[in-house]
Each structure stands twice: as structure tokens, then as C-alpha cells.
Design a protein around this nucleic acid. Structure first.
Length: 269
DNA sequence: GCGACAG
DNA sequence: ATCTTGTCGC
């Protein structure tokens, strides 16, 4: 698929102020509320370990309808100046397509400007994807960003695809409570603070415990989930938990991670 | 000046 | 992100 908003395609040649200005513009176009066609209850990870449990009303049976297509996206680096994006499309927990692309990394990693470093490779990857995604899951922040335009939001808005951001660490914002020792399935809201453009107290995402060990001295940190585009914070957390299948990372992301590793080894061009 | 920062 | 063995636990 191609960008719906070419003017938002990340341009690594912009200077820092221009990048930040573009992010503010993107945040204006972003929709942080549910506005998608997919049925959240049909977004499951795996038939065997998925945690989705449909109500037994007797009249349903995977009505062979149109289960939503969820695409997991991740990046890896081949060189110091080449990144590879890996996309894995799933429907009903089954991989239906994989796509990838290699693109130059023109700028270094700068907190808050990640999409300008990895966005090019990601969009190139989507260009190679033939299925139409109902939801894209990115590795990084969405609304949990200084200017509410993290990677998931930037790419989601550019492609105008519903998206969520899944990060392993908090970029900014303030958890409303301790995020330590949460039980599997728990979530703690992340509110905007002085570092975020949103009004103080706005819920911009959630710390989500997708996996946790039941007993002793072994802990798993929660995922940091935030809306990318056309998805509200609560729904973003719901979707991530729905896509989780016993691992910390939701299936789309886990498979994309895996695919990226394979590409790194196989496509050592 | 100090603190803080996705991948 | 990336560089990497062993190690603890179910």
C-alpha cells in the first residue's frame, strides 16, 4: 500500500525544528479514539494459546466472514547505514503474508525523532505488502510522545491505517500508579505530564502486563501501549492483550521480530 | 545548570 | 537497536 498523506512521509533531511513541526501537524491529523472497521473480538493471536474466548451463543462458528488483518512491524539493522523493515500479516492467528524492505538510515537515533530514522524503511515495507491491513502494530510509541506523534502515530497517519504502538520502555508521561509487580492482564494508565503537549492528566496510553510469572523471584516488565491512529487508549490496550499468546510481546510483533532476525541473516547483501 | 529520553 | 554465555526456573 502507498501513503495516503505523502506530505507526512518522514524526511530525514529536515532539520530538527522542521521535524518537530511536522510532528505537531501530524498530531493534529491523528485520531486518538476508536475509528476503525475491525471487530476487536475477532483479533486473536493463536487458536491454541490465544486468550480470546467467544461467547457460546451457538450461532457463531467463525462465520467465515472477514476476520481483521493485523500487521506486525519491526526493524533490524544490517549495517550502520541500512535498516530492514519486517512486516508479518496475520488473520485469525494465521500468517497470511510477509513483506520487507531495506532502506538507508540517514540519521542517528534521537529520542522523540525515531520515526525519521526508521519510517522510511517501514513505508517501503508497506509498499511491498499486498494485503490491506485493518490494524498495524508498531514497535515503539504512538501517542506517548512529547508531541503526541511517535512512530506508530506518524506511520499510522501517513498511511491512514488504524495503529497501536507497543514499546518496552516509557518515553515520557507519568504512570498513575506503580507499574511494578502487576498481574497478567493488568494495566496502569499513563497520563500526560509537563513533557507532553496534551493537557496534563490526559490518558495517553497504558502500561500493560501481557505476561507475568505466577510465583517466585522472576519478573516481567509491562509493555507500554499507546494509540497510534484511529484507536483509543483503552482499545489499544485491549487489542494488545487480545494479540498476546503467552509471550510478553503480542504475536504480530513477536513474529515480525523473528522475521527481522531471519532477514538480517539471510539478506546480508 | 540539571534531568531525561521509544529503537 | 546491537554485542553475547551462562543461568535460573517451570
Amino acid at each position: 500500500m502507498e501513503p495516503v498523506h505523502p506530505e507526512f512521509v518522514p524526511d530525514a533531511s529536515l532539520d530538527r525544528d522542521e521535524m518537530e513541526a511536522l510532528q505537531r501537524e501530524i498530531a493534529t491529523e491523528a485520531v486518538f479514539d476508536d475509528d476503525f472497521a475491525l471487530d476487536p473480538s475477532r483479533v486473536c493471536a493463536d487458536r491454541e494459546t490465544g486468550q480470546q474466548e467467544l461467547g457460546a451463543t451457538g450461532s457463531e462458528e467463525s462465520a467465515a466472514g472477514d476476520a481483521p488483518v493485523v500487521v506486525g512491524v519491526d526493524q533490524a539493522f544490517l549495517d550502520d547505514d541500512r535498516a530492514v523493515s519486517a512486516l508479518v500479516a496475520l488473520r485469525d492467528g494465521e500468517v497470511i503474508e510477509r513483506a520487507h524492505a531495506v532502506a538507508p538510515t540517514e540519521i542517528p537515533y534521537i529520542p522523540g525523532l525515531l520515526s525519521f530514522r526508521e519510517g522510511g524503511a517501514i513505508l517501503a515495507g508497506f509498499r511491498e505488502l499486498s494485503v490491506e491491513p485493518d490494524l498495524a502494530v508498531f514497535d515503539g510509541s504512538g501517542r506517548i510522545h512529547f508531541r503526541e506523534a511517535g512512530l506508530a502515530t506518524h506511520v499510522g497517519v501517513t498511511l491512514d491505517v488504524p495503529s497501536v504502538g507497543v514499546a518496552k520502555n516509557l518515553l515520557c508521561g507519568r504512570p498513575v500508579a506503580s507499574t511494578d509487580g502487576l498481574a497478567e492482564g493488568d494495566r496502569v494508565a499513563i497520563e500526560a505530564d509537563g513533557d507532553v503537549t496534551a493537557p496534563d492528566g490526559t490518558v495517553i496510553g497504558y502500561a500493560v502486563q501481557s505476561r507475568q510469572y505466577d510465583s517466585p523471584n522472576r519478573y516481567v516488565n509491562p509493555l507500554i501501549v499507546s494509540p497510534g491512529h484511529r484507536v483509543g487508549a483503552e482499545t489499544a490496550a485491549d487489542l494488545v492483550l487480545s494479540c498476546s499468546a503467552g509471550y510478553k510481546l503480542p504475536e504480530p510483533t513477536r513474529l515480525a521480530d523473528q522475521y527481522a532476525d531471519d532477514l538480517k541473516a539471510e539478506v546480508g547483501d
